[in-house]
Design a protein around this nucleic acid. Structure first.
Lengths: 126, 126
DNA sequence: TAAGTGTATTATATCACTTAATACACTTAG
DNA sequence: CTAAGTGTATTAAGTGATATAATACACTTA
């Protein structure tokens, strides 16, 4: 719906999900994929809010989550930076992947699918 | 959090999700797994609302979704019944499974995982 | 000192979800 | 025919998450 450039990043914002979750997910994705380098500065709260035309508080909420994820660190008066720890990024990726897998398997088993069924579906997809 | 028996079915209700979605998912699951026979009557809107101690309108919303799924049929003055079409149940299961798989793959690719990674994770799970 | 950082607070608005109280048309058991 | 049980519709109200708005404070750097 809405697409904006900021700091070399591509932002997609719509109304299908809470704004702060979309910002959160896109940073998570960018950092996990290495599209943002370790230690790199991300846009300031005010800048991103202005570019996306949303409220600074909403961006704040996303940034606080990012820090709880261990993906960013804040420096007073300077800004928000991607963690310099490759290990933290790896750990985060692995944990989130586990959650996705568990949720997926849970869903499939709720529908009465067996492991053989799931594998068959997966084979069709690749 | 809350567990209740009604018409041979087990109901789990909490506050982690909208109530109508929880009711919906549990009926979907029960029907897809064959825990409720084709053509069988499910509890009336009022009865289920009373047992679960929630509002009839909330149950109604779930039942309307169920019918949109093609899993139930309503008969005026009689009640709501599971469809007699095995084909509709199969179709529903397959469609929902596809959605779960697509969402899962989307998530994993957002985290930068490749197909080989996904397969490795899956192997660890079984 | 001024501008740019993150952060906190208070107030307001909107929307999804849920409840509540009724009412109506239909079907079935008596 | 009557009463009870069905699904359904309507209107009103309450709650919580989300988002906006306006403002202020402490810190850092040029």
């Amino acid at each position: 719906m809405d697409e904006r450039q900021v700091g070399g990043l591509n932002f997609q914002i719509d109304f299908s999900q809470p704004l702060y979750e979309q910002i959160l997910d896109q940073f998570r994705s960018s950092i996990a994929k290495g599209e943002i380098d370790l230690g790199e500065k991300i846009p300031s709260v005010r800048e991103l809010a202005q570019v996306l035309k949303i409220n600074p508080n909403t961006v704040m909420r996303a940034y606080q989550e990012l820090e709880r994820d261990g993906l960013t660190e804040k420096r007073r008066g300077q800004g928000t930076f991607v963690t310099t720890s490759q290990e933290k990024v790896r750990q985060f990726r692995h944990q989130l992947a586990q959650e996705y897998i568990d949720a997926f398997i849970q869903h499939m088993e709720n529908l009465g699918y067996t492991w053989a069924d799931i594998e068959a579906y997966m084979k069709n997809k690749r």
